[in-house]
C-alpha cells in the first residue's frame, strides 16, 4: 500500500538525483547560500561535518502494514541480506540492523541510502539492481525489527534468553518521522 504519493520511478538513482520528485511533506530545502558548493546530486556542501542544513529527506512511502513488512522480509532473504546481516538481521559480516546503533543514520532516507548506494566497508550498492519500491519495503522491514510489528521474529536464544532491551533514545533514533 502506498502512502501519500505514488512513486513510479524505475530505479533508485532517479529519486536521488531528481529533486523535483520529492514529496511535498518533507522539509523544504532552503535555497543554497551564495557561493555554496553543490555536490553532484544538488546537495549543498559546507564547512561543517555533515550538511550545513537539513538534506531533503523522503519518508518511506509505504506504511508498515503486515503485507509490506512480510514482503520486506521476503526480499531481505531473497537478496541475501540475511547472509551478511544475520537470519533475523542480528549481524554477521555486516552489522546488526536490529540494535539501537546506526552507523549511517536511522531515518528512512538514511536506511534507503545505505541500501541504494552501499557503504564503505563492504555493503553492496543495490540501487541499480532493485526497484525503488523494493528498497522502501526493505527499509520498512528493517525499521520493524525488534518491534511488535516484526514479521517472523527470531526464536529465543538458548544461551541468552533475556537480552537487555534495546535502548533507543526517544526522538533520536526514531528517524525521519514517518514510514516505519
Amino acid at each position: 500500500m502506498m502512502k501519500r504519493f505514488a512513486l513510479t520511478l524505475p530505479v533508485a538513482v532517479s529519486i536521488l538525483t531528481l529533486p523535483a520528485c520529492q514529496p511535498q511533506e518533507t522539509t523544504e530545502a532552503e535555497p543554497a547560500p551564495a557561493g555554496a558548493l553543490m555536490d553532484l546530486t544538488g546537495r549543498v556542501m559546507g564547512t561543517q561535518p555533515g550538511p550545513d542544513r537539513p538534506l531533503i529527506e523522503v519518508d518511506n512511502p509505504y506504511d508498515s502494514t503486515p503485507n509490506v513488512l512480510q514482503e520486506g522480509r521476503r526480499l531481505f532473504v531473497w537478496f541475501n541480506c540475511y547472509g551478511c546481516h544475520g537470519g533475523r538481521a542480528g549481524g554477521g559480516m555486516g552489522p546488526s540492523l536490529r540494535d539501537a546503533t546506526w552507523l549511517y543514520g536511522s531515518a528512512d532516507q538514511d536506511i534507503f541510502d545505505s541500501i541504494a548506494e552501499g557503504r564503505r566497508y563492504g555493503m553492496p550498492a543495490w540501487g541499480t539492481k532493485l526497484p525503488v519500491e523494493q528498497m522502501w519495503k526493505l527499509t520498512a522491514y528493517i525499521k520493524s525489527l525488534d518491534t511488535p510489528m516484526e514479521p517472523e521474529p527470531p526464536p529465543p536464544n538458548p544461551v541468552y534468553p533475556n537480552p537487555p532491551p534495546r535502548r533507543d533514545i526517544p526522538g533520536v533514533t526514531a528517524g525521519g518521522g514517518g514510514g516505519g
Partner: peptide, 26 residues
C-alpha cells in the same frame, strides 16, 4: 565475534547461526 556489539544476542541465527550457541560471550 559474538562478543562484538555489532551482533545482537536476541537473534540466534545471527553470525551464520553461531549466536545461538555463543551470545553469552558478551
Amino acid at each position: 565475534a559474538n562478543a562484538f556489539e555489532s551482533i545482537s544476542a536476541d537473534d540466534p541465527t545471527a553470525a551464520l547461526g553461531t549466536t545461538g550457541a555463543a551470545a553469552d560471550l558478551k
